[in-house]
Design a protein around this nucleic acid. Structure first.
Lengths: 174, 174
DNA sequence: CAGTTGTTTCAGTATTGACAGAAACAACGG
DNA sequence: CCGTTGTTTCTGTCAATACTGAAACAACTG
């Protein structure tokens, strides 16, 4: 994998080489980790690459940097855009599409994982509706529903917390 | 799939049939849902079956009820035991192993999903260590680390909340 | 309105993982 | 100590998914 640093000037040559190695490793590990998150390896590497490249990146560049096909980049970008981990940006006077990591990337990574819990509530609900009032499984289904309710609360709290953090970072009154 | 209800007496025959249908559907859906949680379909169905069967269940019974091989039950039970979603119980004078849903099953389901986030922190840490002080990716890695820290806090809070709930249910001083 | 560049869709391939059946293993009972 | 019962490990098969290269498509430029 090739990773370009922005200024390639030669004032501290040893650092650049090590940085590239470090970043390459980081991007690769992000790929592996995101696999567990239901995003494909390439998707994770894209997230990693965008993270360590603080500027808009074209899909062409990603394909080259990550040494994968353009089609894979395209497919994975679509997924990442839908998940709102990545945003598309346009640069004036340039018809190429560029992409950056969304400000909400981490928050949304968390949401994805927590939101997957919520369907359990509906499942338990359906179960309760279909069972006669004295069925022994009822209390357990009920407590499952309660638990999912708690997760919903947590989810809301993280949104609030994240919200207030962003406000602090952006300065008050933003 | 066959689901046995505990008392099979005939005082309200119509209910039993519908219950069985409902539960069968529920168990099946749990399987599908848990697939998204990194547990296999069979693992999810085991969780579902244990949920709606409020008594210790042998692996033999699971295999029959879910219509899957004993080996699959065995493999999946090992995973579920490690994840602490299921507990093994012994009945005196019986050499068969029985299993019940753990009291912490839901809490641990949540933990599994949140804990998967934590390795991100280490990844970011390694990245920071390997990069020279002026590298433009540093601030982003730092803020990633901060975010994971927040998730850790949330995780701890849910443990506390769950803890206090259980105490309420069990009665004070337990 | 061609020609060029960039992006998406499609069809085939390869890798991964779940699952079943059989064999091996362990533990208990006569 | 042999036979029976219960559980785990192993090997092969099948299905699902990620990925690629090629073709189709879209958008801009001269």
């Amino acid at each position: 994998m090739e990773l370009e640093s922005s200024g390639e000037s030669a004032d501290n040559p040893p650092s650049k080489g090590e940085d590239r190695q470090t970043l390459s490793q980081f991007v690769e590990n992000m790929g592996l980790l995101y696999q567990d998150y239901g995003v494909s390896r390439i998707g994770g590497r894209i997230v990693g690459y965008l993270l360590v490249t603080p500027r808009p990146v074209s899909s062409e560049e990603m394909a080259e940097a990550l040494q994968v096909s353009r089609s894979s980049v395209s497919t994975n970008l679509r997924t990442l855009l839908m998940a709102e981990l990545v945003e598309k940006v346009s640069l004036p006077g340039d018809r190429v599409d560029y992409y950056v990591l969304s400000d909400l990337a981490w928050q949304n990574t968390l949401e994805m994982r927590l939101a997957a819990i919520l369907p359990l509530k509906e499942l338990a609900e359906e179960g309760l509706e279909g069972l006669y009032p004295d069925h022994p499984a009822r209390p357990r289904l009920q407590s499952l529903m309660d638990w999912v309710g708690m997760v919903e609360t947590i989810l809301q709290r993280t949104r609030d917390e994240w919200q207030s953090r962003s406000e602090v970072l952006a300065g008050p009154g933003s």
